[in-house]
């Protein structure tokens, strides 16, 4: 399988072509025994899940561990997936449950470390901005990550799923198993709290 992972990252396949298979088709293929489909799902979701799980721990190592647990469950419990739900909803739900289990198990307090210390971002997507604006955005993002850590967890997770992961309200509602109205309210409250903190940051 190691070979498969390497092959997948090096070669372009049908799965990497412009006419990409949907996640749902990939999981169906994996359920039929296609290991390459599993590898493709891992490639598609490992970073996204890390960015999500990281908000629970603010610790890269722990977050990666939980993402690996999630991807192992994807391997062992693939047959549990039914195409009535989107694959992303299913995998985020597993990740969320793993993160919560890990939090309960370890009863670890969240560290004071910031994202910039623990998990320095490698890939920065800035779309044709000037250097000044890019630097300004980087500082803003650093501040935002710090403030995200300061708002209540139920607001933070909902905001992360919406504004970082760009999931629909319906998906977030399913993942967090909370009514859609409550999700909208939490996201709104989270955004307002963040924007208030960001306002103070700008004034400094």
């Amino acid at each position: 399988m190691n070979q498969n992972l390497q092959i997948l990252s090096a070669e372009s396949s049908e799965m990497n072509s412009p006419f990409k298979l949907t996640d749902e088709k990939l999981i169906a293929r994996f359920q039929d025994g296609d290991i390459n489909a599993y590898n493709e799902l891992v490639n598609r979701y490992k970073d996204r899940l890390l960015n999500f799980v990281f908000r629970y721990f603010n610790n890269r190592e722990q977050a990666e561990d939980v993402v690996q647990e999630t991807l192992i469950k994807l391997y062992t419990h693939a047959s549990y997936y039914k195409p009535i739900a989107k694959f992303s909803t299913w995998i985020y739900t597993i990740a969320k449950n793993n993160a919560l289990t890990e939090l309960r198990k370890n009863k670890r307090k969240r560290t004071d470390s910031l994202w910039t210390n623990e998990g320095k971002p490698i890939d920065i997507k800035m779309k044709g901005d000037s250097l000044e604006k890019t630097v300004h955005n980087e500082i803003a993002v650093e501040a935002l990550n710090k403030y995200l850590d300061e708002i209540p967890e139920n607001f933070r997770i909902a905001v992360v799923l919406r504004d970082f992961q760009e999931l629909s309200y319906e998906e977030i509602s399913k993942i967090l198993e909370i009514p859609i109205g409550t999700i909208k309210s939490r996201i709104n409250r989270g955004r307002i709290q963040l924007s208030e903190k960001m306002k103070h940051f700008k004034e400094q």
Partner: peptide, 9 residues
């Protein structure tokens, strides 16, 4: 800002 945030890899 959140939409443009860097992706943790």
């Amino acid at each position: 800002v959140m939409n443009q945030a860097p992706i943790l890899k």
